[in-house]
C-alpha cells in the first residue's frame, strides 16, 4: 500500500453554498450550507426524506440544484467532478453481475490507464479492502459484505480525492457493518482522502466522523454541525465507551428528535 499512498493526489475540500432543491411543489432541500474539510471524514445524518440522497446527487453532479452551488476544491461543480468516486447503497445493483470482481474494479479505469497500470491498481485496491486473490470470482459468488468491499475497491482504484458513500452499510449485518466501518477508517487514514458518508445510524455517524452535519426535516436545513474530537485510530469497543462518544450520540439523537437544547452540547465542540 505504501507506493499507492505516495502517488495518491491531495484530498479535496468540498463547500456547499446555500443549496436548495425543489421537485415541482415539493421543497426537498430548503437551504444547506456546509464545509466538508479536506482529508477528514464527514457524515450527514438526517430524517428520512430530508434530501440526503438528493444532496449527494447534487454533489456528484448527477443532478442540478434549484439554487446554490457546490465548490470542489474551489471550483464550481458542473457535471461529475474529476477525482470523485462513489460507493452506492445497494451493492447488488451497483456492481455488474456479468463481470468478474477484477473487471468490476477495473471498469472505470478502461481508456484511462494502460493495461499494466489497471492490473496493478486493481490488485492494490483489492488488497486494500482485504480481497486479494478474489478477483476471479463473480460478485454473486460473494457475501453481501464482500460485495460492498468490491464496491469500495472499485472506488479506490480511481484514486479519488473525495469518496462519497450513500448509506453504504445499510444492507449488511451488524458484525460486517462494524468491520466495514473500521476498514473505511483505516483506508482513509492510509490514503489520506476526503470521505463524505450519509447514514441513518447515529452510532455509526459518531464513530466515523470528524464532522457530523445534522439535517432537519424537509425542507431541510443544517440543524447543527458537530466536530467530533474522538482520538484516532478508533476502536469499536473502547471508543464507544468514551464519555464524548456517549454524549455526542445522545446529542445527535436529540437533534434528530427536535428536543435538543444548547446545554446538551456541553461535551462536544459545536462548530
Amino acid at each position: 500500500m505504501t507506493d499507492h499512498a505516495t502517488e495518491q493526489p491531495a484530498p479535496a475540500e468540498l463547500v456547499l453554498e446555500q443549496i436548495s432543491k425543489t421537485y415541482g411543489q415539493n421543497r426537498a432541500i430548503g437551504d444547506i450550507s456546509a464545509t466538508i474539510p479536506a482529508g477528514k471524514v464527514s457524515v450527514i445524518v438526517g430524517p428520512s426524506g430530508a434530501g440526503k440522497t438528493t444532496l449527494l446527487r447534487i454533489i456528484t453532479g448527477l443532478e442540478e440544484a434549484t439554487s446554490g452551488r457546490v465548490l470542489f476544491d474551489g471550483e464550481v461543480v458542473n457535471g461529475v467532478p474529476e477525482g470523485l468516486a462513489m460507493v452506492f447503497q445497494d451493492y447488488s445493483r451497483s456492481l455488474f453481475p456479468w463481470m468478474r470482481v477484477e473487471d468490476n474494479v477495473a471498469f472505470p479505469l478502461r481508456r484511462r490507464a494502460s493495461k499494466a497500470e489497471r492490473t496493478r491498481r486493481v490488485a492494490e485496491a483489492l488488497q486494500a479492502v482485504g480481497l486479494d486473490g478474489k478477483g476471479r470470482l463473480y460478485p454473486w459468488q460473494m457475501s453481501g459484505g464482500m460485495q460492498q468491499r468490491v464496491a469500495i475497491a472499485r472506488a479506490l482504484a480511481c484514486q479519488p480525492r473525495l469518496l462519497v458513500m450513500d448509506e453504504p452499510y445499510a444492507s449488511v449485518d451488524a458484525q460486517t457493518r462494524a468491520e466495514l466501518e473500521d476498514l473505511l477508517l483505516s483506508i482513509q487514514a492510509q490514503l489520506d482522502i476526503t470521505v463524505l458518508v450519509v447514514t441513518h445510524d447515529i452510532d455509526e455517524s459518531v464513530y466515523l466522523a470528524d464532522r457530523i452535519i445534522v439535517l432537519s426535516k424537509p425542507p431541510s436545513t443544517v440543524t447543527e454541525v458537530i466536530d467530533v474530537g474522538l482520538a484516532r485510530p478508533r476502536d469499536q469497543i473502547t471508543t464507544k465507551e468514551e464519555a464524548e462518544f456517549v454524549h455526542a450520540r445522545a446529542h445527535v439523537l436529540r437533534l434528530l428528535r427536535g428536543t435538543a437544547t444548547p446545554d446538551d452540547a456541553s461535551d462536544v465542540r459545536v462548530a
Binding site: 446527487r57 452506492f88 451497483s94 455488474f96 471498469f107 472505470p108 481508456r111
Partner: peptide, 12 residues
C-alpha cells in the same frame, strides 16, 4: 442505479 454508476465513473 446502474445508470448512476455509469455517470459517476464516467463510463464512455
Amino acid at each position: 442505479a446502474r445508470a448512476h454508476v455509469a455517470s459517476v465513473f464516467k463510463i464512455s
